[in-house]
């Protein structure tokens, strides 16, 4: 078999494969839930109800989507330039680290000054963390996939060391946990009484900003050129290495905002379980969004909905919670295949 590009795909061709991919994911998840003794026909309903069925569920989904928008954007920016940042998890923790270092009393400032300072500090920290693999790549030709992956382990151990040492909360009853942020450092809620903080709004703002950078700026143009063909970009006079470093700084900064928003908006302190893999899930979010920054918002809501909904479904139907991860993996693999099939047809030879 071989693949043949389709010159101008019909509407059906553009819609059918992704739709089939989503339906297939739901069918597979239902069958898997049946293995665990659940009624397969109730699975989809329970997931939707758990994710969007009540005000509480909806807010939970929006809260879960917030860090995913940040990490999704971080990956989308990097992958667009074919810079394979698999280390958003480390950059997220870097952002969270700066937030607790500066936000627990070191800067005794009022909110309007402290919160932006924390956000900027987080962005810088995340950028620096990704700068190391970027420089190793551009200077020494070290593959960034390996270095960013290994950095996740190194950085988590580093955080663990700090949480058991200098950052340990003396009031924490022995748990490896930082002190709580001072109240001026906390992100306020958008609406009184609703558990949704300004981190969500910041995430939407960042998505728009990234979209503007990618489509309306020289840097965005250069990033796309480097992503499409590095040699051609270099031939056209684009400073490829400089663009890769700038991409890395932007990507690392965005991922770090996820850590900032989780700590300042939701958790109030830093623990080792701050992120259940938001950095890795950001890759799924970005791919499902076809690396489009505005699409990242939609796909983050979709992925968060699967997490929150499948979690609630698992509890209701007595199914192991790992079903959510299986659904996401299935959705990811089927979706990348489906997206390819909207543009190519399979020909037998």
């Amino acid at each position: 078999m071989r693949l043949e590009p389709i010159a101008d795909p019909s509407l059906a061709r553009s819609i059918a494969p992704p739709a089939i991919a989503i339906i297939a994911t739901v069918v597979i998840a239902s069958l898997l839930a049946m293995l665990a003794g659940a009624n397969p026909f109730s699975v989809l309903g329970l997931i939707l109800k758990g994710a969007f069925g009540s005000q509480f569920a909806l807010l939970e989904t929006l809260n879960r989507a917030t860090p995913l928008i940040f990490t999704g954007l971080a990956i989308a920016v990097a992958f667009k330039a074919k810079f394979w940042n698999i280390g958003a998890e480390a950059q997220l923790y870097a952002g969270a680290l700066i937030t607790v270092v500066l936000g627990t009393g070191a800067l005794p400032w009022p909110s309007f000054a402290l919160i932006p300072a924390l956000a900027i500090g987080a962005v810088l920290a995340g950028a620096v963390v990704l700068l190391v693999p970027a420089i190793l790549k551009t200077r020494f030709g070290v593959d960034e996939v390996v270095t960013t992956l290994l950095f996740n382990f190194i950085f988590l151990l580093f955080i663990s060391m700090l949480l058991e040492g200098p950052l340990k909360d003396p009031m924490g009853m022995g748990w490896p946990k930082s002190a709580r942020l001072i109240s001026e450092a906390r992100l306020p809620r958008i609406f009184d009484g609703l558990r949704l903080h300004w981190g969500f709004a910041l995430a939407l703002l960042c998505a728009c900003a990234v979209w503007v950078i990618q489509t309306r700026s020289t840097l965005g143009y250069e990033m796309r050129a480097v992503g499409l063909n590095r040699d051609a970009a270099a031939f056209a006079g684009i400073p490829v290495n400089a663009v890769l470093v700038k991409t890395a700084l932007l990507s690392g900064g965005l991922a770090a905002l996820a850590g900032f928003s989780e700590v300042a908006g939701l958790k109030g302190s830093l623990t080792l379980d701050l992120s259940p893999g938001f950095g890795y899930t950001g890759i799924i979010v970005a791919m499902l969004a076809l690396l489009n920054p505005l699409g990242v918002i939609v796909s983050a809501l979709f992925v968060a909905g699967i997490f929150v909904g499948a979690d609630s479904m698992s509890r209701a139907a007595g199914v192991p919670t790992y079903l959510a991860d299986m659904m996401l993996a299935t959705a990811l693999l089927l979706m990348v295949l489906a997206i390819m099939l909207t543009r190519f047809r399979v020909v037998r030879d």
Partner: peptide
């Protein structure tokens, strides 16, 4: 199908890990 080896690889890792844990449970 020539899909991105990075994305498929990470997807396979997630699928293999989660389905293993699911099967274990």
């Amino acid at each position: 199908f020539g899909l991105s080896q990075h994305v498929v690889g990470l997807g396979v890792t997630l699928l293999a890990t989660s389905s293993t844990y699911y099967a274990y449970r």
